[in-house]
Amino acid sequence: MMTMNEEIDTRRHMPLGLARRGYRGVIQHLDTTDVGSALSGLELESRLLELGFVEGAKVEILHEGIVGRDPIAVRVDNVTIAVRRREAMAIIVSDLNGL
């Protein structure tokens, strides 16, 4: 378990909100500071957790919206969730492509 985390940690971390369609990654952590959502940081974090955005979950961006490629449809393990990019900025992921 430890070695796997270390391996993932060496990869590039980025907010899911910046990723493009087809991106595949693993959630490293949630960071709701400076996200600029209408929700408070705690509320946003709770909602993301309730929808399954938990550390270690695999994510893949399946679809993008029409205006400004927003919102995005994200596959989180076995569920597909639509979120706006702004809220997805709180989800810090590391790359899974090529694994």
Binding site: A38, A73, V79, A82
Partner: peptide
């Protein structure tokens, strides 16, 4: 009430 940001499950 807090505004609901768009977060929605897309069911199968």
């Amino acid at each position: 009430y807090a505004p609901a940001p768009f977060m929605l499950e897309l069911p199968d």
